[in-house]
Design a protein around this nucleic acid. Structure first.
Lengths: 151, 151
DNA sequence: TCCTTATCGATGCAATTGCATCTATATGGA
DNA sequence: TCCATATAGATGCAATTGCATCGATAAGGA
C-alpha cells in the first residue's frame, strides 16, 4: 500500500460511488423483499447457472464468477438446494467435488426475480442517464476494476 | 415500481457499478483489517462527529448522515463508547435522547484509520483516473442518487 | 389535565456471516 | 507405494445483523 493521500476529486468520487451503489442495491433488495422474493445473491447464482446450461458449474467456479467467500457459496447453495432451485450432482473424475445445476423451478424463480430486479435497474439507472452516459459510466468504472477493463 | 425492462447499457452499467464498488470497499476493509483497524463504518461515525465539533450529534442525526439502520447505529455507538472513542451525554431539553461526542482518542483513531483509508482511496481511485474523469464519474453518479445531485 | 400518538434509543431473539478448521480426495515427488 | 502437500467443500462457534418490539419521554389535541 503506497503511503499517500487522495486528491479531493478522488475523495468526492469515492464517496459518491460508495453511497450511491449502497443506495441502489438497498432499494433493489427492498423491492425484492416487498415482493416476497429472495435476495440478489440468489439471482446471481441462478443467473450464472442458467448461463452455464446443462453442464452446470462446480462451486469453485461459482466463487470466481460471483464474488463471495467459499463458505458463503457453500451455504448459499445449500439453501438453494433446500428450496429445490438447484441440484447437486457428484462429478465422476473428482471425488471431492460436485456439479451444481439449475432446476426447472430454479429457472422459474430466476424469471420472477428478474421481473423485479430488471424493473429496479430500469428505474434507477435507465431512467436517469442516457445510453451514452451509461456507457461512459461503465467505462470509467471499468478502469477502476482490478484488473482494469479498457473497452 | 414501473413494470419495464432495462436497456443493455443500463444492465452493463449496473453490473459494473455493483461489482466495482464491492471490490473497492472490500479491498479497503481488508487493508484496515490487515492494519488491526476497525471497519469503515467506524470511520464514518468518527468523521461525522469530528465535523460536528464540540456540540456533538444526536444519534438520529447520525442515522441521516451515514446510511445505517437505527439499531445499527445504536450498537455501533455502544461499541465506540466501550472503546472510549465517543462519549454519550444526556441532553437537557429532551429526556429521551443523548448527545454523542468524539473523544480525544476517537480523534486519534480517526487519524489512524484515515492513514490507511486515504491511501486506499488514492491507490484505487486517484491513481486510476484523472481529476477530470473523477469529476465526470462523480457527476454521473450524482444523477443516480435519490434525490439526484445536479452539480 | 388526560389521553392518544409520535419519536428516541435500546434490546431479545432468530438468521446470517466470518473465521478457523475439518474431512475427504487428489496430486506429485521420493 | 508411501508420504507430504494441495484442493474441494462443509461446518462449529462466535460475532454481527435484521426484525420486531419495548420502555421512556415528548407533543398535541380534547
Amino acid at each position: 500500500m503506497t503511503k499517500k493521500f487522495p486528491s479531493p476529486e478522488a475523495i468526492a468520487a469515492w464517496a459518491r460511488l460508495v453511497r450511491v451503489s449502497r443506495q441502489l442495491v438497498e432499494r433493489t433488495e427492498d423491492a425484492l423483499k416487498a415482493n416476497g422474493l429472495p435476495p440478489l445473491a440468489w439471482y446471481d447464482v441462478l443467473h450464472e447457472l442458467a448461463e452455464a446450461g446443462e453442464g452446470g458449474l462446480r462451486p469453485f467456479e461459482l466463487i470466481d464468477r460471483i464474488l463471495l467467500a467459499q463458505y458463503s457459496v457453500s451455504r448459499l447453495l445449500a439453501r438453494l438446494e433446500a428450496d429445490g432451485l438447484v441440484e447437486k450432482l457428484p462429478v465422476s473424475d473428482d471425488g471431492r467435488g460436485q456439479t451444481v445445476r439449475i432446476t426447472t423451478s430454479g429457472r422459474e424463480m430466476r424469471r420472477r426475480i428478474w421481473a423485479v430486479y430488471g424493473a429496479s435497474i430500469a428505474d434507477q439507472m435507465g431512467d436517469k442517464l442516457s445510453a451514452q452516459d451509461l456507457k461512459t459510466l461503465a467505462s470509467l468504472l471499468g478502469r477502476l476494476r482490478n484488473p482494469p477493463i479498457s473497452d
